[in-house]
Design a protein around this nucleic acid. Structure first.
Lengths: 118, 118
DNA sequence: TTATATAGTTTCCGTATGGAAACCATTGGC
DNA sequence: GCCAATGGTTTCCATACGGAAACTATATAA
């Protein structure tokens, strides 16, 4: 029983190493917290502080770096509300939302293959 | 139009940050070349040298490290043929093959979202 | 007047990652 | 007797990554 159809296999086979779609996705999801940030935002927009808490407190610097990178790649938007203290909300763009297919595939694989040792 | 069904969204929402399936998958696919190695092997078993060429010549040390890690996690098997010069073949296990769902999702996303600048 | 909350920024630093280069083992072929 | 080919291993090193701590801005509340 195949886990992959011939159509999919062909796509994977014929794509060159350079500029392959897989590499493009890897580039976007690069960095220690990046993928998890997207996962958090898939359940709705979140504030900076909420993200930090949900992720288990990465350093402010690191979280800022990742958010800025994702913003630059148009995966999410950053909205500052002119209040005091400031409120900043991050929300996925349509492009960011579309990463849910990748995230969900990861989620399923991870749950179907619990780690044996390690 | 939603890109994710309510069933999927619920799964992503209710999973805690620790031990989430996404994190498990990230752990397996960790490292610079890891995901690309799996992509290469999805089109069939490959020798060490073939992998190096296909990937664009990562250092031997790095490739060895990644292959050993994937072997340890039972994503692939390493078969040594007692010939001279030696021939070593790497092939995905069933578990490794099942990563095709993740890889294919990445491939599609990457192809549907070519980079604008960067 | 001072404290407080949020969302940073900046500086500094330790570690991990990955690459380059040199070296090794084996044996069939010249 | 020596070289080539394969698939490594070992050592060394530069950089990138990410964390900790200290600092900042602002307006409201006490």
């Amino acid at each position: 029983m195949e886990t992959i159809g011939s159509e999919q296999r062909d796509l994977l086979r014929t794509t060159s190493s350079e500029g392959c779609g897989v590499e493009r996705t890897l580039k976007v999801l690069d960095g220690k917290w990046t993928t998890l940030i997207v996962r958090e935002l898939l359940s709705g927009p979140k504030r900076f502080g909420d993200l930090r808490t949900a992720l288990g407190s990465p350093s402010a610097k690191t979280l800022t770096d990742r958010l800025r990178a994702l913003e630059h790649q148009r995966i999410l938007t950053r909205t500052v509300y002119a209040e005091v203290p400031p409120r900043v909300v991050y929300r996925l763009t349509e492009e960011g939302e579309s990463l849910s297919d990748v995230l969900y595939a990861m989620l399923r694989w991870g749950e179907e293959h619990p780690l044996t040792d390690d």
